[in-house]
Design a protein around this nucleic acid. Sequence first.
DNA 1: CTGAAAGCGCTTACAG
DNA 2: CTGAAAGCGCTTACAG
Lengths: 329, 329
Amino acid sequence: MKDVAARAGVGLKTVSRVVNGEAGVTPDTEQRVREAILALGFRRNDSARILRKGRTSSIGLVLEDLADPFYAPLSRAVEEVARAHGTLLINGSSAEEPAREQELVLAFCARRVDGLVIIPASDDHRYLEPEIAAGIATVFVDRPAGRIDVDTVLSDSHGGARDGVAHLIAQGHRRIGFVGDHPQIHTAAERLRGYRTAMTEASLPVHGSWVSMGSTDPERVRTAIGAMLDGPEPVTALFAGNNRVTVTAVRMLRERARSAPVALVGFDDFELADLLSPGITVVAQDPAELGRTAAETLFRRLEGVHDAPKRVELPTRLIVRGSGEVPPA
Amino acid sequence: MKDVAARAGVGLKTVSRVVNGEAGVTPDTEQRVREAILALGFRRNDSARILRKGRTSSIGLVLEDLADPFYAPLSRAVEEVARAHGTLLINGSSAEEPAREQELVLAFCARRVDGLVIIPASDDHRYLEPEIAAGIATVFVDRPAGRIDVDTVLSDSHGGARDGVAHLIAQGHRRIGFVGDHPQIHTAAERLRGYRTAMTEASLPVHGSWVSMGSTDPERVRTAIGAMLDGPEPVTALFAGNNRVTVTAVRMLRERARSAPVALVGFDDFELADLLSPGITVVAQDPAELGRTAAETLFRRLEGVHDAPKRVELPTRLIVRGSGEVPPA
DNA sequence: CTGAAAGCGCTTACAG
DNA sequence: CTGAAAGCGCTTACAG
């Protein structure tokens, strides 16, 4: 910029004016500055601008896995909102590791992002308190924050799971298995709770062997489902706690196609669910809407809205496609 | 930092030393500084650090759509490599709009990212010349750059499509349709070329109505496929130019299940392709490997490797699952 | 309409 | 082992 000013024979401030399209420069001066910019290949250094202005016009998004088909649309929705606000998106995957979540969040804060959208992997976010106090707006999405009070956008995991399991009960099922993610994950715990609610509301007992929580690794899920199907009180229907479990369940039921058919309802919709035979009945969330709502909440804060932190819960939707309407054997 | 120094009764440089874990501070002094940092809730401002250091330790990734199942693993792979290099990832979706691609790239450059990984939407990248001259390392992936000479990582679209179409020919098909994306997109054009190569190698004519290029919007794809199946020279097999086309083709063939079965091979693998009936035979790329290779190439440049720009072409793999082995009616 | 000075919050290069 | 001065490249607040 100094070089441009020297070459154009003007002051620094005049170059700044031209670069930022501010008024108060004669066409003639502006022309000289523009020529110097072109000749020198000058591009404004936003790092310096940011340092001086205080706002970075960037936000950070921490999620579990960018490549997960559930989070990809969420992430894209956040990006679109950010773009509409002239803001850049920095993101990172926590890989479900609390230490990595914290590392990413603090790295973003050190870059002085204006705000954060977080899908947490940990359950204690007090480490964020100084950052929030320092003015970094923060919204949690998909899962709530632990031990701090911040804006949160969730899906109704409890209600969705209850609806899905009630649907199986309505088809006549009495012995229903639940396979979920690690119980520390809020959504997993809530869905299990929804399952129990539905069973209780129908006065059905829940056999201990019908519930399995843990890694969504296919091997573990297979073992769990195998035990439910071949155990002493074999289930006639399965409720899968998320998309990864559902896919493994579909594979497994396919392989056992010769045995008595087992009904299946999964939490989370996924592409091609309608093309399988039977189509997979699911409790669908709207990940893009989660992302959009979270990002809009964030920007409302950045625009200076200062009421108490809010918790938004988005409804789920049961999509009937066939797999959940298989009657009990 | 000034406040911390004042409170600890030391100089700025000493605070800097403690914050950065540099040697040469007595334990006693360090202790005082740490206490001041804690008391004041001080966090280093990386914007200032960046300005002074010259390197931002961030890279930019521009792709077409973060939410596309093909690009999500690519993006994740880039992130992992960046992470291994202590670098943050900024990303944005071009939505296949050249103006948006350029806007994102220039915004990243203004933030002085150390490097760029670009999946281009445009075919003229001369606008990048000043940035590259200014030292921003750049790698193109999935599609080549236009009118500039830079590192590029591609899949073998031509060879993959040729293999896929040759596979259909080997099953006895003579009338094969090709439905692809917009012909301006390099991969789309290359796959079409692969189709023609395979047909020519088998001395088969290509009827004009067997080729349709354009938007991957389901309505357009349906119309195109309908014309091929119901036209004067009806095809007995289809080659789909990418995952979006394949999915629409699957839906359509499913609906027409009562007519003579049509063979299908698609470019790009997708989740659950094996669970459909029949399973979908595909020419698979490895998007994560594309991303990893591109990012590693980028970091090699950032570490100072200065040979001529390289072009890497990764092989594709034909995965046989059933849909491509349907014989001609 | 234009520009000189100060400052954003750090690090660098140097001196003690 | 420690710190004062200069500077990274901009913008702000002000004066002319």
